[in-house]
Simulated scan of single mutants.
Amino acid sequence: MYLTNKLNIETNLTVIWYKTEFDSSDYILIEGVNGKDLYHLDLIELENDVLDDYKFDKKYVKLINGEVIELKF
């Protein structure tokens, strides 16, 4: 529900939705980044250019100006 609500009310929000092997789907919410600019990036470029030090080690996160905030439900 959190993700659905955010997608309905937020602007300038990009979602990276991914699934790792043997786990359920996870997502990263990124504020202030144009998703169209990310579309051409492969995973390595995405990690280096957008995610900085974040390495998919938390279930649900929000990135605001490079700061990782883990979402707890």
Rank of each mutant, 00 (worst) to 15 (best):
M1E: 14
M1D: 15
L3Y: 08
L3E: 10
L3I: 07
L3G: 03
T4M: 13
K6D: 05
K6H: 09
K6N: 07
L7R: 11
N8K: 15
I9V: 15
I9K: 14
I9N: 14
E10F: 02
E10H: 09
E10M: 05
N12Q: 08
N12M: 02
L13Q: 01
L13I: 01
V15M: 11
V15K: 03
I16T: 02
I16K: 00
W17C: 11
W17A: 14
W17M: 11
Y18F: 15
K19T: 15
T20R: 12
T20M: 13
T20H: 09
E21V: 12
E21G: 06
F22W: 14
F22Q: 14
D23L: 11
S24L: 11
D26M: 12
D26Y: 10
D26H: 15
I28C: 13
I28F: 08
I28E: 12
I28L: 13
L29D: 06
L29P: 04
I30T: 05
G32D: 14
G32N: 13
V33N: 02
V33I: 12
V33R: 00
N34C: 05
N34P: 03
N34F: 03
N34W: 03
N34V: 01
G35T: 03
G35Y: 08
K36M: 08
K36G: 14
D37I: 05
L38K: 01
Y39H: 07
H40S: 14
H40C: 04
L41T: 04
L41E: 05
D42G: 03
L43W: 10
L43P: 04
I44P: 00
I44G: 02
E45T: 02
L46H: 08
E47S: 09
N48H: 09
D49I: 06
V50H: 05
D52N: 15
D53L: 04
Y54D: 07
Y54P: 04
Y54Q: 06
K55P: 00
K58S: 12
K59M: 10
K59V: 10
Y60I: 07
V61C: 08
K62S: 14
L63C: 04
L63Q: 01
N65I: 07
N65Y: 06
G66M: 02
E67R: 07
E67D: 13
I69R: 03
I69E: 01
I69H: 03
E70W: 02
E70N: 10
E70K: 11
K72R: 09
F73K: 12
